[in-house]
Design a protein around this nucleic acid. Structure first.
Lengths: 203, 203, 203, 203
DNA sequence: TATGAATGAGCATTCATTCAT
DNA sequence: TATGAATGAATGCTCATTCAT
């Protein structure tokens, strides 16, 4: 009378996690459905009980990773903090979000991003609109910088450009941490970045 | 030395150039041999007269792109310049090298890099040892910074970390320029980066 | 004999009816077991409590549909009627049997028949021996025609051929009614067929 | 300098012929691309050098078969013949067209038709709009009958219905010939049909 | 030497059937 | 008994590579 009871939500999450592992390891394009199945310890067909397609998995994995960070970022933006603190918090949170608890998201981030960067396919853009994401980030950070200029905390001629440079620096730092995790932690690096950037390195 | 050999070299180069164009446009994995053949205006089979495999093309394309930049960088490193000028030149040259005459290398760089970043495949590492490349760059830049600290031009506590941050910033800026070429030129951005970074943005 | 067995029979019939509906709508090959389960309002696995396989369902559905018509036809054949009436009744009954109460069998007939027509697979022939069915029909109708010739009611040189033509006409009319139910009812068409066929259209 | 020269047109036709054979034998849905490849004596991938998809093959096979017949039919319609001759010619030509030189098209016709009959898929309707085909045929034949009524050759109350019956009869006869080629030739059957139909079988 | 026709390994996806509950 | 989660064989299609010309 009663069928096999399975926590569909939990199993879906398991598959998602397995997919992330494989995506991080091999990249999205090179990952075969059978790789994900094997990683999840299930049959190939079972995946399709939980996801409609490989693309669907990709989209869900992406959401899984980003939703958390996005919310945290929003909270910081609307918090009542002085510009410098806000900038620090925003950058630290972003980097931490990307690297997850133990850096486990690093690889999957890389996979997402390298996929999005060169894929002009509309279907991918629907899932990850990197251009949009960057535009949003630039807007948020330049708003903080503008605020700082108004309050007299910062001296910046082109806040939009400066925002871009800060974001770029974050990305580049993350990349190095992902590729070579032993050299330094991203948090250390972001602090170094802000330290130098805020104060200048020229004597 | 015979004319035939010269022709072979020229044709090989043509194919390589065609491959770069397509790689830049579609990414390495998504590029089909037929795409390259078409772009080069030759038959599909002909490619195999000049290259052993798709991977071989990838490796050679990579070498083609980097050899030029590498030599320029080396020249700057060993030139007799003050640290600040050296740093400016190094960064500007790197960015220009990546973007080529008219930004044509940008896409191919992206393609290489997104390939290398997530591919831990030994075969890819043999071709593009990104970890090594970054290590080299960090060493070069931190040497310049060390020199600047010695001469009193810079005030940097951790030159290695600062070097990493600068490299990261360059990468990140390039990424944004590639993805959204209208917002600013990489040269502008690098100048803004150096300006802020050298002088600080804090009042 | 126990209530359970009765229940089983009833449920089996329900599944069969559901299967017919779906077969009629999508064709046998395109019908999925899950479609049948859904149409029957039961679980996919439950079907296998009543049928061994999809093919088994197909066979049973077929028997279900034909048994009724076959018996009616037999009754007409052995009835004591004049040849013309017998012919009319036989054809009308056949067409009505195919179209069911409200034309609901039309689609399933089509499904069976298109399956049988092209499938020379032994397993299908075991289930629907169309060749045999047509041979039987030809025999029955030519017997009626022979009778008519003997009694002087008909003037037919080749009763076997004429029987074939009549059967063919019935089939073809049914097909058109199924494909385009608005043009005319099969009963109308059969009457028109008999009218013309019996009297000729040539002035 | 010169590549392998292949008559692409000829090879395409060969594959088409092979496909027809298999379609006729197994039906369209049950035919696998590998079946066609095997029947054509080529590799699976080679098919895709000549056709975009299985559906494409289906459509082309269909056109291949029908184009000839269609033109012949048009010629008859516009010829200057008396109604009875026109009707005879039209029906004979149609039946002959369906059966090809040695009845080789019979099976493929069956396959097409059973596909079209139950497939409400838009893609199939785009290829074979059976409803349209039947409507056209009904129009053509009823026009001939109308003409016959005007000239006093025929005595028909409902020419549209009579046309439908005639078409149906043709279809049904073809079906029987295809399923059981030994009983009679379609030409014989069509002649018997016209003979009876035109003159009536009632004494 | 140059070519593109031919190929088959490889992959995403579907679905009849099984089986643990 | 009833169920639906799990499965893998099967299938359409792609594309790097080979090879006859």
């Amino acid at each position: 009378m009663s069928p096999k009871i399975v926590d569909k939500q939990a199993k879906k999450y398991e598959i998602l996690t397995a997919a992330m592992r494989v995506f991080a390891q091999k990249g999205v394009v090179q990952t075969r459905m059978s790789d994900i199945a094997e990683a999840a310890g299930i049959g190939k067909g079972t995946i399709y009980e939980y996801f409609r397609s490989k693309e669907d998995i990709f989209a869900e994995t992406y959401r899984q990773v980003f939703e958390g960070t996005e919310q945290q970022v929003m909270a910081i933006i609307s918090a009542d903090l002085d510009p410098e603190t806000k900038l620090r918090k925003l950058m630290t949170t972003t980097v931490d979000g990307f690297l997850g608890d133990g850096g486990e998201f690093a690889g999957i981030m890389m996979a997402f991003w390298s996929e999005a960067v060169r894929n002009k396919d509309d279907r991918i853009i629907d899932i990850i609109n990197l251009q949009q994401i960057y535009a949003d980030y630039r807007r948020m950070i330049s708003a903080i910088l503008d605020e700082g200029v108004l309050t007299g905390a910062f001296q910046v001629s082109d806040t939009f450009m400066t925002a871009s440079v800060l974001i770029g620096a974050m990305d580049g730092i993350l990349l190095q941490c992902i590729m070579d995790p032993d050299i330094f932690t991203p948090t250390q690096a972001v602090e170094a970045l802000l330290e130098s950037y805020l104060n200048g390195i020229k004597k």
